[in-house]
Design a protein around this nucleic acid. Structure first.
Length: 762
DNA sequence: CGACGGGACGC
DNA sequence: CGACGGGACGC
């Protein structure tokens, strides 16, 4: 059980085995009717093992369908160790439907982009609902035990226990119908493997019911990845692929001994992401310790195993080859070879905004572009979907995530991840990899959630935060163990501290910047894997009263936040610049491919912008506690910065989002306008410092390596010559995000370190 | 150079 | 009735 990692993988899912004991049947859950009382979020009727921070969203108030919640309500509660009381008794079978999500505020046309899979404006999915399958439900559970929990995440239309047809006894699982996939998604993220019902043996499993994904038009793009380092973990693989889009799932093929076979599968929710990954990685990226580059191509349809009819099986498209259309209605582009632009996206909406397509289009053809047979090219999707998918889900997590996210302005999808310096980098840069990835990844998913930070974003955040807890409680997860590397610098200290606090800070600090998603995720994972070196200064204080310690941490957190903020800003800016620059090379860039784009990437700009900001931050980073977040940010941003970023809605309309305030509008904000003008001037003045394609990365690598060995992440952002600032900021990101880095000196993570640093050809 | 898991899926 | 058998890109 290590897999299961969907969007947020590595949640250490302990799939305990089933608890089928208990009996007692119960209410059926028809549509809710009367009212209830769980007005107070606090009423966490289900205390118990892993309850994550209690109601992220409580009660009647609907969390998220509105504007981006800036500060997720994390009343973080201690990690549930043992929850106690159970007030389930308080519930009676009456439930009140939470009020429908409030209308979007401030948006002209309501939801510019629906957050649900189908893309329907009213937020209702196909058939008006999205059904989830929930496993590990104690047989004794009643609707009262379940519904409130799920209602925290969305409008629950129905709760239906699966029971033995004959005996009527519950089977330990149930179906939950949500009004939309966005809500279902949220529930998955928030609850899957994260909450153990009273009487339950393990955390509930929450995922789409068999066939739901297909029914909802979801599609996944599965890539086969070969030539992986056999020591690599799912997480590491994810990191390599995340620059091209949110990685929905990573599955490594292992032998009986659980040894990796050196190959596996990576899933994305959009073809563009998959193609970008193929074009950028296949044959070009070599994992540390490997002597040959990765092979990345669309996966063949899964070979159906006898007797594995579960799930919708081949919903359409069957395992083999059938129609390869993602969704019934949508058909793939005529020519397969033609990558780019097809909107074959699973979802109906036109996947990427025009701009987004631009970059991507470049990828279409490149060295390996044609590695994959035509068929796979676009089809893959369906088939994989149908074939393996019905049952796939495991993860629960992500799935529709991608879809939901897609609603977001995937606009910048394409931007190619400035992936590794070039085709043949690798070994040395290995560590670098990540940093490079990050930026792009930000572009990939982020924007998505940004505007509507509600759904995905905030949830993701939550989930991540929650996971932290989980991971901690389940610190022995296979993942955390084998990944010394994860404890990337500095972050470790958090372990000692109060998670809640940390979470709160973090969440408030990073909640909405477009690029922040990733960071959150990484940060969370980093935190989750703490358990190791604790910075000296912290150690010294360990004997202090908790309160003080907490405070200290709090401060550090702030510092961290500052760093993040600046990093985020940096990337945001980067992103902006990218946008600015791209227009110029529209299609002309097509044949140039990745590399070129890379060069264009705003390194220069970054430097300029970042410099001032980082500087500002520095001073504060170390000392200033609280206020640093807000003020620091502004300062960071200084004159050169603008929180507004332009995005394109699925329907092609541009809109603007303020990463700081969370505000979004259709009209272009003055600030942005002037900001852009400013930028143009700058870029005009400073021609681009052509970062040597390979050179830069390498430098970064070194620098990072050094930094990593010395300071805690947040400190890294500090002082450094402007020129290096960019690196510094990246370094911090990297540190945070990357797991695969070199271990901190003196703390050799034995094997990991070994293999990672193993000479390439070795 | 490898190729598909994860518990469970009603009315 | 149940699921076997066949099978495959490009490097």
């Amino acid at each position: 059980m290590d897999r299961h990692r969907g969007g947020e993988r590595y949640v250490n899912s302990n799939n305990n085995s089933d608890p089928f004991h208990y009996k007692q049947q119960h209410s059926r859950g028809g549509p809710p009717s009367s009212r209830t009382n769980f007005s107070d979020g606090s009423m966490n009727p289900h205390p118990q093992h892993h309850r994550r921070s209690p109601n992220a969203y409580r009660g009647p108030h609907w969390p998220a369908f509105d504007s981006p919640p800036r500060y997720p309500p994390t009343d973080a509660v201690a990690v549930g160790t043992g929850g106690g009381g159970v007030d389930s008794e308080r519930f009676h079978s009456n439930y009140q439907m939470p009020p429908p999500p409030p209308p979007l505020s401030g948006q002209k046309r309501g939801y510019p982009f629906s957050s649900d899979t189908s893309g329907s404006p009213d937020g209702v999915d196909e058939g008006g609902f999205a059904k989830l399958f929930v496993g590990s439900v104690p047989r004794t559970a009643t609707e009262e035990d379940i519904r409130p929990l799920f209602e925290e995440q969305g409008r629950v239309l129905e709760v239906a226990f699966i029971r033995d047809k004959r005996t009527g006894q519950q089977q330990g699982c149930c179906f939950i119908k949500y009004a939309t996939s966005a809500e279902a998604d949220r529930a998955i993220r928030a609850l899957h493997n994260q909450y153990t019902l009273p009487g339950g043996i393990g955390p509930i499993q929450v995922r789409y019911a068999d066939g739901e994904r297909e029914r909802l038009g979801a599609v996944e793009y599965k890539l086969f990845v070969g030539s992986l380092n056999k020591q690599a973990t799912e997480k590491e693989v994810e990191e390599i692929f995340s620059p091209y889009g949110r990685v929905e799932d990573v599955y490594l093929m292992r032998d009986d001994m659980k040894q990796s076979r050196g190959c596996g599968f990576v899933k994305y929710s959009h073809k563009q992401m998959a193609m970008a990954a193929i074009n950028s990685l296949s044959g070009k990226y070599t994992m540390r310790g490997c002597d040959q580059p990765l092979t990345v191509r669309f996966a063949d349809p899964k070979r159906p195993k006898p007797g594995e009819p579960r799930g919708s099986g081949p919903a359409f498209g069957g395992p083999g080859f059938g129609p390869r259309f993602p969704t019934p209605g949508i058909r793939p582009p005529p020519n397969i070879g033609e990558p780019l632009q097809d909107q074959t996206g699973p979802n109906a909406w036109h996947p990427m905004s025009p701009e987004s397509l631009r970059p991507i289009s470049n990828q279409g053809m490149h060295g390996f572009g044609n590695q994959f047979p035509p068929r796979t090219t676009d089809t893959t999707t369906p088939s994989s979907l149908g074939g393996s998918f019905g049952s796939v889900s495991g993860t629960g997590n992500g799935f529709l995530t991608g879809l939901a996210a897609s609603s977001a302005p995937t606009s910048q999808l394409p931007a190619k991840p400035l992936p590794t310096g070039g085709p043949q980098i690798s070994q040395l840069q290995k560590p670098l990899q990540s940093p490079q990835h990050l930026p792009s990844s930000g572009q990939l998913h982020p924007p998505a959630s940004t505007p509507f930070s509600q759904g995905p974003t905030s949830h993701a955040l939550f989930r991540q935060m929650n996971q932290v807890q989980i991971s901690q409680s389940a610190s022995q997860s296979p993942f955390s163990q084998g990944m010394p590397s994860q404890q990337s610098l500095g972050l470790t200290w958090q372990s000692t501290v109060s998670q809640p606090q940390m979470q709160r800070n973090m969440s408030s600090a990073m909640g909405h910047t477009p690029l922040s998603n990733n960071m959150q995720l990484h940060v969370a994972s980093a935190i989750a894997n703490q358990q190791q070196p604790v910075p000296q200064h912290l150690v010294q204080h360990l004997h202090q009263p908790p309160s003080q310690l907490a405070q200290m941490l709090s401060q550090q957190t702030q510092n961290l936040q500052a760093s993040f903020q600046s990093s985020q800003q940096t990337f945001t800016q980067l992103q902006q610049q990218l946008q600015l620059m791209q227009p110029s090379n529209e299609s002309s860039a097509v044949q140039q491919g990745t590399q070129d784009v890379k060069q264009q990437s705003p390194w220069p700009g970054l430097v300029q912008q970042v410099a001032p900001s980082s500087t500002a931050v520095q001073s504060k980073a170390d000392v200033v506690p609280a206020s640093s977040t807000a003020s620091g940010m502004n300062q960071i941003t200084g004159p050169v910065k603008c929180n507004w970023t332009e995005h394109t809605s699925p329907d092609g309309f541009k809109y603007y989002y303020d990463s700081v305030t969370g505000e979004s509008r259709w009209e272009k904000p003055e600030e942005l306008i002037s900001y852009e003008q400013q930028q143009q001037k700058l870029s005009a003045q400073q021609p681009r410092i052509q970062a040597q394609p390979h050179g830069l990365p390498y430098q970064q690598a070194q620098m990072q390596a050094q930094l990593q060995c010395q300071l805690p992440t947040y400190v890294q952002t500090q002082v450094r010559p402007p020129q290096q600032l960019q690196q510094a900021s990246q370094g911090s990101l990297y540190a945070v995000g990357m797991t695969g880095q070199q271990p901190i000196q003196g703390i050799p993570a034995a094997q990991e370190w070994m293999w990672k640093n193993k000479p390439a050809g070795a």
